[in-house]
């Protein structure tokens, strides 16, 4: 009684060639995404390490040593304090007068350079802010958030980064300074 039909069971599942194709496509896709992410990511600063170089194109009316455009590396040999701010940022307004007062103490020596970096702002708002607080140290817009990305901005604005004479990031201040004395103490830590 075994002559009954024993049909061949139909092959189930995805064919081998399709499986190989799917895995190859997935692997290629992952490699492509990984490569793209690596290419698009900026180098980031870490405390105790040299800060990757970046360009500064100052706002109209601002300059440093007669130039309206410079690189961070041009300031090697000087202590650089980079302050990230925005005109829409209320805490930035708290520290703005103190920053300008502190700059007045250092600007003639030429040993310490203040640089303001305006984070995602409108030109009109920025100029209004700079005028309102009478800021005289050089200020530049943070185009495409490139500078704040390199400096590895931690929380928001304001944030201030202290870079020593060798171009090494020494300290980060998150939030506004409370006084000129605090700014002086901050700068002294890079000496």
């Amino acid at each position: 009684m075994t002559e009954t039909n024993t049909p061949n069971a139909p092959k189930r599942g995805v064919p081998l060639w399709a499986q190989i194709t799917i895995w190859v496509v997935l692997a290629g896709l992952l490699a492509l995404v990984g490569f793209g992410l690596k290419r698009s990511s900026n180098p980031m600063a870490e405390v105790g390490q040299t800060v990757p170089d970046f360009d500064l194109v100052f706002y109209e009316g601002y300059e440093h040593n007669g130039t309206a455009k410079m690189k961070l590396s041009d300031l090697r040999g000087k202590v650089v304090m980079v302050n990230i701010w925005a005109s829409w940022c209320k805490p930035c307004e708290q520290e703005a007068p103190d920053l300008e007062d502190a700059w007045q103490l250092y600007k003639d020596e030429g040993d310490v350079v203040f640089v303001g970096v305006d984070y995602v702002d409108t030109p009109e708002g920025a100029f209004g802010y700079l005028k309102k607080f009478g800021i005289t140290f050089p200020n530049a817009p943070d185009l495409q958030s490139n500078i704040s990305s390199i400096l590895n901005r931690q929380m928001g604005v304001p944030e201030t980064y202290l870079i020593d004479r060798e171009g090494v990031l020494r300290q980060i201040k998150i939030g506004p300074f409370a006084s000129v004395a605090e700014i002086q103490s901050f700068i002294a830590s890079a000496e």
Binding site: A86, D121, T122
Partner: peptide, 9 residues
């Protein structure tokens, strides 16, 4: 306020 500035821009 920031967005208001951008809309004005």
């Amino acid at each position: 306020e920031a967005c208001h500035q951008w809309r004005e821009l």
